[in-house]
Each structure stands twice: as structure tokens, then as C-alpha cells.
Nucleic acid binder design. Structure first.
Lengths: 128, 128
DNA sequence: TATAAAGTCTCCAGTTACTGGAATGTAAAG
DNA sequence: CTTTACATTCCAGTAACTGGAGACTTTATA
């Protein structure tokens, strides 16, 4: 199938699918006459896999790794679990950061009158 | 003072401080002889302000806006509050996303044996 | 005073994961 | 046969820096 069909089936944009071909993540066959990319069902499965992993916040490089683990019949589930646990840990860190950020900001907002006068504890805090 | 001193006082890297000069956020005077950037205490105060706002997850453009509000003696605290509330809302969205991501991933991890066998529900999920 | 080391300058490239657009070529529909 | 839709490549831009090269100035050491 052509690229737009593959894109539709995988829920990705044509641009993104072409990008994945460029970076050698999913390299489809080529139609010799037209030069058009020609996607197999297997290619689409890979695109799906990558799309999902990206939605799970795995980076492109991590996707590459997961994909090769997926293709490797001798891999151990241990390896995949390790990758996923590391990902969870990094998400936890981000969560912690954002939580404290949020708390600090909302504290500042609570202290700010939000009226037409210039006095503003938010700016005061930023300038300290 | 020279750039490295300004960087040290503001807790930013020299590269970053030079970058802020390039994008016209904090434009120091120049030493005519050497061409070196020459930072005043006020420049350093601006750098501090920006550094803090960046740590509060405000973008460069938002920092620019906050900085001009800070400098504007006629501003209303309402404007600043509005910007901050919008920032909190966007952080909340990110928090929600990351939370559900985390939950899904940790559910997958719980289902995965993590042993030397290839069977792995994490990869199974990604390939669905 | 000569030289070495440290600090600074500008400019270019790379990072991440795409996205938009131009110019051009191919395929399908009317 | 022409219009339209889809495809191709290549270049540039995004956000906010960071790293490095090559050249110049200032400061410290011998």
C-alpha cells in the first residue's frame, strides 16, 4: 500500500511515517516504476507499535530498542521490564517536579490580588 | 562586570547568558576596547528574574512578557495572575497525562514476569 | 618582558521529533 | 487530455540551549 494508507492505518501523519523511513525505523519497499514507498502489513504493524510506544512517552531511540526486542525471539521479558521501569522512574521524577512547581505557583496566585493595582507578589517572588 | 561574573551571580551558564543577549532579553553594554559584554547589577537582576521564571516553567516568550510587566510600573497584578493561572492550567494538563501514562505503564510492569523467558505482556500491549 | 593560561568573542552545528512548504513527478478520475 | 490527488526530495523552522572551532584580549606566571 502507499504511504497515506499506511499512515491512516497506523494513526500517524504521512510526514511522520516518511520521517520514520528517513531515520531507518520502518523502511518500506519501493515501487520501481514510481519510486513510491510501498508498505506491507508488517510495516504497518511496526508503525503501530512505534506509535503506541511514543504515546507511552518512549523516545525514538527507546522505540528502536523495544522494536528490536519485539522482533527478537530470544529476548527475555526482563530486558523489556527494565526499560519500562526506567521509563516509569523518569516519569515519576517529572511528576514530582511538576507537582512542586504547581504548588509554588498556586501559592503565589493565592497571594496575588489580581486587581488593577500594580502590587504583585508573583513578580516580587520572581525578582527575589 | 564580565559575563562569567554575571553568570555566576545569576546561577546561569555563560552560554545561556550569551544566548539571552543574542535573543535580546538581557542586552548588556559593551566594553569599547575589548568588545566584551559588560553587565550591570540591573542586568544581573534581570538574569535572576528570568532564571527563576524559567525554573517555574515559563517559556522564553512568557519570560519576556513577565519581564516587561515587571518593568512596567502601570501594570496590574491581574495581568500577571492571568499568565500564571494559564501556566498552572497547562501544568495540570501535563500532570494528568503523565499520571495516566504512569499508571498504564506500571500496570504493564505488574503483569510482566521479568524473567529470562521471552513472553512479555508489555511488548504484547505495544503490538496490539 | 615573554609567554602561557584563562577568559571572551563570533559563528556554525547539533540536539528531539517532527512539521510546513516549495518544486517536481506520478497516478487516478472525469 | 486535463484536472486533481497523491507522491517524491530537499530545505527550513521549532525551543532553548549546548558544544566546539578559530581568533582575540586580559591576566598570571617565569
Amino acid at each position: 500500500m502507499n504511504i497515506s494508507q499506511a499512515a491512516k492505518l497506523s494513526g500517524l501523519s504521512v510526514k511522520t511515517v516518511r520521517y520514520y523511513a528517513d531515520i531507518k525505523m520502518v523502511e518500506p519497499a519501493r515501487n520501481i516504476q514510481s519510486g513510491y514507498r510501498s508498505y506491507s502489513n508488517d510495516d504497518v504493524a511496526k508503525l503501530n507499535f512505534i506509535g503506541k510506544a511514543r504515546r507511552f512517552n518512549f523516545s525514538i531511540e527507546e522505540c528502536r530498542e523495544l522494536l528490536s526486542l519485539y522482533r527478537d525471539k530470544n529476548r527475555s521479558s526482563k530486558e523489556v521490564k527494565k526499560l519500562t521501569l526506567a521509563k516509569i522512574a523518569s516519569i515519576d521524577e517529572k511528576l514530582k517536579e511538576f507537582h512542586s512547581l504547581r504548588d509554588e505557583l498556586s501559592h503565589l496566585v493565592d497571594c496575588c490580588n489580581g486587581d488593577d493595582r500594580p502590587s504583585c507578589p508573583i513578580l516580587d517572588e520572581l525578582s527575589k
